[in-house]
């Protein structure tokens, strides 16, 4: 499940950023380094949208920002603080983690939560372990940790900011709702027991009343 979330977010991000480029190339892996275009292109500090990348900062939770708030104008291919642009799914996690510095310039408080694993970014690992996806209960997928011993686990950050939040529209996309909860299964058909019960009670009462009508039971003294 997590992987689907992650994967979709990644795909959405990649698509949003690289749609035109990816469309041009037949294979997703082949993409142009940012600098290839941005060496020649410049953007003013006043810019808020980019038609080519499909970015419009008039909308979304980052509405009101300028490109230059995060990108170093005029070339924009490097972010403020000298961090290189990295794309989830295309770059390794280490370089994505670098991008956290950009986010933390404004969101210092949340970044502190993040650093303390209080922002939904934890996972655990074990040495020599893997994770595998199993589709199980009610068709919901789940990643099992497979470790040799399941001792000495350690908690580590699972994701960089941009792996969940599109920096140009940081609100998380809505997620699907999983099926309704269940309760114990309803009791099976018990009509045979009911029938047996009726027979037993009728037989029992029948014997009592037949042999000994109430009031005339001549029990011996």
């Amino acid at each position: 499940m997590v992987s689907w979330v992650r994967l979709t977010v990644l795909l959405l991000l990649a698509a949003a950023l690289y749609a035109p480029i990816l469309a041009a190339s037949s294979e997703g892996q082949e993409f142009y380094p940012c600098s290839q275009c941005h060496a020649a292109l410049t953007v003013t500090g006043q810019s808020r949208s980019n038609e080519f990348h499909g970015i419009d900062l008039a909308e979304g939770a980052h509405g009101g920002l300028y490109c230059s708030n995060c990108h170093q104008a005029p070339q924009v291919d490097v972010l403020v603080g000298g961090v290189n642009i990295s794309i989830p799914g295309l770059h390794p996690r280490d370089s994505l983690m670098d991008l956290n510095k950009v986010c933390s310039t404004c969101h210092a408080d949340i970044y502190r939560d993040y650093q303390l694993h209080a922002h939904g970014n934890q996972t655990y690992t074990c040495s020599g372990g893997t994770a595998e996806l199993v589709e199980g209960y009610k068709g919901v997928g789940y990643w099992f940790h497979i470790c040799p011993e399941y001792r000495d686990l350690s908690v580590e950050p699972a994701k960089a900011c941009v792996e969940c939040h599109n920096p140009h529209d940081p609100t998380m996309p809505a997620l699907s709702i999983l099926p309704e909860p269940s309760d114990r299964p309803s009791p099976p058909d018990e009509s045979s027991i009911a029938l047996g019960g009726v027979v037993a009670v009728l037989a029992g009462l029948g014997i009592i009343l037949w042999v000994a009508p109430i009031g005339k039971r001549g029990g011996e003294p």
Binding site: I193, G196, G197, A200, V201, A203, G204, L205, G206, I207, I208, W210, V211, A212, K216, R217, G218, G219, E220
Partner: peptide
């Protein structure tokens, strides 16, 4: 020990009891 009526009472109750315990 008892008359026919008393045994009838016991037997009737026993039928219900046995079925209940069986269930």
């Amino acid at each position: 020990r008892g008359g026919r009526a008393y045994y009838g009472l016991l037997l009737g109750l026993l039928v219900m009891a046995v079925y209940g315990v069986y269930v």
